[in-house]
Amino acid sequence: MIEILSTPSLVTIQDLGRSGFYRYGVCRSGAMDRLALAIGNLLLGNDRGAAGLEIPILPLRLRFNSDLNFSLTGADCGAMLGDRPLPPFWATRAKAEDVLTLNAPRSGCRVYLCVAGGIDVPEVLDSRSTQLRETFGGIEGRALAKGDRIAAVGNDVRLPHAGVGTVPPAVALAAAGDSTTAVRVIPAAEYADYDDASRAAFWSADWKVTVQSNRAGYRLEGPELALTRPRELRSHGVVPGVVQVPAGGQPIIQLADAATMGGYPKIGVVIDADLWRIAQARPGDALRFVECDTAGAADAHDETETYLAQLAADVGRQRRLATAWGVA
C-alpha cells in the first residue's frame, strides 16, 4: 500500500488506455507516455500494460506502508527514496515507512510510477485508466489527493538489491530529427489544402508548446497556417496524434484524452511511436515536425518493439542472476 502525503493536481492512475469504445464516444485515455509506462512495468516483471501513476506536475511525496518493488520512468525528477537518490528509469525495492520524494523534473514533463503487479483498481471498459472528463476509471474517476491509499496487485519478482534500470528511450532510440523534440508526422487528409508557404512552414518552424496544453491536446504557437480556400468538413473520427488546425491557423495535436470526433482540417498525424516525445515536452519547449510515411512509421514502431523486447530480456536476466547470486 502507498499513501499519498502531498500531491499537486492531475496525478492519475493510467494504463495503456481503452480501445474498442470509440463508437460510443469513449476516448483512448491511458498514459500520455505509453512507452515510459511500458518500461516501468517491464522493469518490475509486470505486463507492460499494468496500471501505474502518471505524475505531470511535481513535487510529490508518498509513503510506502509495506515493502514493495516500484519503478520510476519518464521525466527525470531527481527522485529520493528516503535520503537515497534514484537514477532515472529505475526500479528498486522500498521498505515499509520509506518516503519517496519526486522533485521538479530535470528533463521531461511526466513521471510514471509503477508498482509490483500494477495498481489494484477495478477495470472499467477494459481499462484501469482514469477518465477525468467522464469521471470513471482509476479511483472514482478523479485525480489523486493527499491521504489516498493505493494498493498494488503485487508479484513475487525479486530485483537486484541496488535496483535495476534501463537505458532511457531518448538515448536508446534513434532521434526523430536534429532537434531534441523532433517528431515524425505523416501528411493527413487536408495537407494538400494548405498553401505552399504554410506547408513549408509546417515542416521548418519551431512550434512552441503553449500553456494551453494538457492530456486532451497540445496547442502550438508558430507561423499561421492558411488554407488555399475555406473548407467545411463534417465531423469525423479523430485519434491521438492528429494535428488539427482551427480557424486561427495554430495547430493542435490531439492526445490521449482528445474527443473522438472533430471537424477541423487535419494537416498531419504524429506517428504513434513518437507520441511519447510529445508527452514529455513541456510548455515553452519547441517541437519540430519531420515528414514521414507509413513505412517510416512502421519502422519506428519496429524499432520501439525491438528496444522493449531487448529491455525485457536484459532486465529479466539481471533479475534472475541477482536471485541466483544471492544479491536480490
Binding site: A162, G163, G165
Partner: peptide, 8 residues
C-alpha cells in the same frame, strides 16, 4: 550496462 539493462 549490459545490453539495455543497467545495474548500480
Amino acid at each position: 550496462v549490459s545490453g539495455q539493462a543497467i545495474t548500480a
